[in-house]
Design a protein around this nucleic acid. Structure first.
Lengths: 338, 338
DNA sequence: TTGAAAGCGCTAACAC
DNA sequence: GTGTTAGCGCTTTCAA
């Protein structure tokens, strides 16, 4: 049984004044006499009056809600991003409507439509891996709803973006190893048709070039999961005697490699130094703890939300779109500390 | 510059019929002639008409939105829960409005109010650690908004609940060690004034009783973080020669203990078997991989959402409240496998 | 078979 | 200083 929420009309009826007076009194409109104001305000307080956000939104076409679409919540990086989004949104008085695409472009498209139907004031999105078609994003633009892409952007859509410089992260990681004296660095990388696969390899190469170090093509392996390490254990072990460092595209691969090497008698970091990428919760828990590159999920969330809120409050400011590039940070732990 | 979204009124004007006819035609009302229907529907399609959810909600006082408040998103357990919530909500055509309390009761109260103001159809909440006052929850009840507490409930509020049986989880874990022949099991526990601290100790004790095994009080240590393990390393090591198993209240403590012991020459699982609690992402990444107790976050999310949706669709069904207790599951990995 | 009108809760011209 | 009215977008009686 639904209890009828008290409305301005109710208050007006009970106090025998008009709804508009109540409305004005509640928002301290200068026209209203102090007595009426007090009367209305104390009464409203007493009956716990709360404005109906739906009515407000319908009237003002402003919902104070931002929509967020991410591939997977259960992922340390994305949950950090959400945390950043939520904190900034909350501080600015905005609510967050959250959807996950589960890396499924159809679900992503449906989520977009649902957010638009809900009249959200803006949308933050990190594109699903399966997405090929930019049409759903195009609808957001046509709808004139501000949008900010973060981490995984859609190239075809002109918009604000927040990304991390993956290549630079890989360069920093590799440079760190080189600075520690490593000369033969094995890279455990992702498939090159993936953007992160390519960019992180580029960073690896760049660091070598900058240090005038030759790149040994046999020191690149396509290996980016724990399972891959197990499957390719023989190959890794056969390379092991000739290397002094490993750079892996993600933490779990780095940790798996570290464990494989240690099980086979290698000392880390003395003989071989290891660095990962991502700074998930694993990195601190491994033994030795893992040096890695922090992806700044929380900052990405904060920054994208700030950019979105700026667009929302300056809708007709036809200012050029910005792409904010965050530089990943080197996090040094035991796996590279002698 | 805001593009005016096309409305039913616009369509009516252009087609020179009345808004009510358009409305009816769009929802296939039997009264409308086939020709008019076709006319309206194809036109609506052409101009990409989309109903304004705000207007719908205002009229029907139904938002198809559920509110979720959790302590921290960046926490594997909670992000699993959210994932479960989102999946079930999505399948039922509901949207999710998400807030985090950051373990702050004031922010929690504000979030509750914001959700109520937004007229969400129901609320899912896991109570913040700092919450002492049940009044904010009381408001939800007074507002007649269905509510389901999950994991961390508020005792004073009568409502549906979904919790995991922590004591049973601890019992299962301890029983597992006992079944493997352990007789001197060190428990690394949380403070006893915390519910999980008490319940998991109870489970530990229960397993001993059920196996007619004496409980050695010196085998309980207050130690529930990685740091604690470091600080109390000496104490742990002095006990080590006399124990054959360890049960820790969470995975990271278990892993830290495991690492400490291995560094000091103990073989795991041969000499000492170790089991944790939680099944976060660390458990698989440690070496040896960690046996643990799965908390079923995803299932909790699913189940609470199902219960909430049931309440939402049967508002006046004054059926008694249910408390659904999920049994944690034993997950056996290398740290207890001989 | 279609249209007119009222109302969901709120605010803001425009009266007076 | 306060009230009347109209309208945000939609649906639904009621009337034609």
């Amino acid at each position: 049984m639904k209890t009828h929420q008290i409305t301005i009309k109710d208050i007006a009826r009970i106090l025998e004044i008009s709804p508009s007076t109540v409305s004005r009194a509640l928002k301290n409109h200068p026209d209203i006499s102090p007595e009426t104001k007090k009367l209305v305000q104390t009464f409203a307080e007493k009956v716990k009056y709360r404005p109906n956000a739906l009515a407000l939104s319908l009237r003002s076409s402003k919902t104070f809600t931002i929509g967020v679409i991410i591939p997977e919540i259960v992922h340390h990086f994305f949950s950090s991003v959400i945390s950043g989004i939520e904190d900034v949104a909350y501080a600015a008085g905005y609510k967050v409507m959250m959807c996950q695409s589960n890396e499924n472009d159809a679900r992503e498209a449906i989520n977009i439509q649902a957010l638009l139907d809900s009249q959200v004031d803006g949308i933050l999105i990190s594109v699903s891996k399966t997405t090929r078609n930019s049409e759903p994003f195009q609808r957001i633009v046509e709808n004139n709803t501000p949008i900010v892409f973060f981490d995984r952007v859609c190239e075809e859509i002109e918009s604000d973006r927040v990304i991390v410089d993956d290549r630079e992260g890989a360069r920093i990681a590799t440079q760190h190893l080189i600075s520690l004296g490593c000369k033969q660095i094995l890279m455990l990388g992702a498939p090159l048709h993936m953007l992160i696969g390519k960019q992180r390899l580029d960073g690896y190469k760049l660091a070598h070039e900058q240090n005038e170090l030759a790149i040994n093509p046999s020191l690149f392996m396509r290996c980016d999961t724990r399972d891959d390490v197990t499957k390719q254990a023989d190959a890794i072990l056969s390379l092991a005697p000739h290397i002094d460092g490993i750079f892996a595209v993600n933490d779990s691969t780095a940790i798996a490699a570290m464990q494989l090497l240690m099980k086979n008698g290698y000392k880390i970091p003395t003989q071989i130094k290891v660095i990962g990428f991502g700074d998930g919760p694993n990195a601190t828990i491994s033994s030795p703890s893992l040096s890695t590159v922090g992806q700044k999920g929380y900052e990405i969330g904060q920054e994208s939300t700030r950019m979105l809120l700026t667009r929302i409050s300056n809708p007709d400011l036809a200012e050029a779109f910005h792409t904010r590039v965050l530089t990943p940070e080197l996090i040094v732990r035991e796996s590279t500390t002698i």
